[in-house]
Amino acid sequence: MNSSQRGFRIFRFAAPQVFYPLAGRLAPWFAAAAVALTLVGLWLGFVVAPTDATQGEVYRVIFIHVPAAWMSMFIYLVMAFWSAVGLVMNTRLSFVMSQALAPTGAIFCFVALWTGALWGKPTWGAYWVWDARLTSQLLLLFLYFGFIALTRAIEDPRRADRAGAIIALVGAVNVPIIYFSVKWWNTLHQGASVSLTKAPSMATTMLAGMLVMAFAAWAYTLAVTLWRVRPMILERERHTEWVGEVLEREGGRK
């Protein structure tokens, strides 16, 4: 499989022995970027951004809530993308990538729900409302759990890879359907309940803080995924000579 792809330059990075050290070199940079961006974002969010006219200080949850919600959806799409690549091109690294992304996506999904609940209590008076967005986010968390549980439960890695890829794709096809159906259900059942639309005029500093925090979440996701993928690669490639050398070098150190 791999040798047939050596002709393309881009696939050079898909070779595990090239990707493993590359991931190790890149991860600390992304982690540093994540720390720096988080500090800037928090500074913008807590020092520069003004108090919201209608919500007071509690709106400052937005600086993690919205980036986490974006990230949780985006990561699922990336997982589905890598799954499709893996099934079509038969590249093992793509499957490993999608499995390394899943826990981080699930964490962001939970963070979005948790911060949403804490934001909702003072603003709408309830920790949870069965709103379309909240409900779809909850179902997305279940999709993450399903993917993680399935890939962990199957012992044969080849089968786990492919089965996980199928369920990730099935989930990705269903996410828009779920969102639409929940929205439909919500408008029928709740009519004019709470309106979740943000205040129309959002101060630019608020927006800037949110965007910077979103980039921080990106950088963090990249760093932690690369760190998580490295031992997974070693595990899969343990029969090869290069992993033997890595093990002697890195494992002997401790």
Binding site: L139, F142, L143, F145, G146, A149, L150, A153, I154, A163, I166, I167, V170, G171, N174, I177, I178, F180, S181, V182
Partner: peptide, 22 residues
């Protein structure tokens, strides 16, 4: 997907119940 997987019944529920919502 869960054919012959240990704990398959519960896993099956976790996998497909969210998809049944619509």
């Amino acid at each position: 997907l869960t054919l012959g997987v240990r704990g398959g019944g519960m896993l099956l529920a976790l996998l497909i119940l969210p998809l049944f919502v619509p």
